[in-house]
Amino acid sequence: MFAYLVRRVIGAVILLFIVTAVTFAIFFLVPKLGGATADDLASRYVGKSAGAAQIHETAVRLGFTDPLYEQYGRFVKGLFVGQEYNYGPATEHCPAPCFGYSFLTQQPVWPDLVARIPVTASLAGGAAFIWLITGVGTGIISALKRGSVLDRSLMSVALAGVSLPIFFTGLLSLSIFSYGLGWTAQGGTNPLDETNPVWWAYDLILPWVTLAFLYAASYARLTRAGMLETMNEDFVRTARAKGLTERTVVMKHGLRSALTPILTIFGLDLGLLMGGAILTETTFSLPGIGQYAVIALRVNDLPKVLGVTLVAAFFIVLANLIVDLLYAVVDPRVRIS
């Protein structure tokens, strides 16, 4: 078990390096193939009317004139031992894990990420809780009442949920519940500024529900399909043959199996969201990882992009690992001895 864990962790670290290397390559190699020089790249990070000399100075400052492997090496070194950064009058030490400094704002990236992860975690966690309960619940009811009016109407709502984009449902709900009725918080409030958990939840309830609606819809469809499949399994027939009540048959025998694949998807979805719920965070102006990614990408700010990529990849890898371990708990057949 321990050896398995170690193997998985090593694999995950290697994967993270590949992810950063690919991000690095996309950022530098693609423009290079298009014929861009180091100065061309640097010209993105100077003021409107900078001259060639200033552009070149910036290229040197940002290290674009060095070979690519050296730049990547610096980045990796920063992650493990930190790096020195010249901010003008002096240099400062950016301690490990140093994700570098923004090309544009010259702010260190790591503290930004650390400040934003809890926002995204609050959003993703709360939404996940809601969608798991409502989505799976709806799915079970639909499966058991298959073909009924209830089933059809629930599945129509679910189809709407899957099809409607967040910025539509988000803006609509904001304009109704926040600006219209004044029941919920406006966008742009940082839920983590609240000390009282009730206000924290108040700030987040609309984003939660909006995000959960999207996921609940697909979870309802998944649960329904899974339940319909498992309820035809032999072991469900056995459970019935034992004389168990229908409730026990469904909840203990049917659902348990139907939920296992959903657990996998749930873990991955949650991991993916932890790397930033881009649309939700943008729509509700929540200062999370997703919003940071948008800001970084819009201005081609590589250190920020790398930071976000690494954090997102980390959570996905972590979620994968947790799902695999949980799977062993849930399904004795895959238990590792």
Binding site: D234, R237, T238, G243
Partner: peptide, 23 residues
């Protein structure tokens, strides 16, 4: 009928692997 099932009448199925709950 449920109350009779398992108590007064019981059944053995063809494939015991799929007929028993794996978890």
């Amino acid at each position: 009928v449920r109350l009779l099932r398992g108590k007064r009448m019981a059944m053995i199925f063809q494939d015991p692997l799929s007929a028993m709950h794996p978890f």
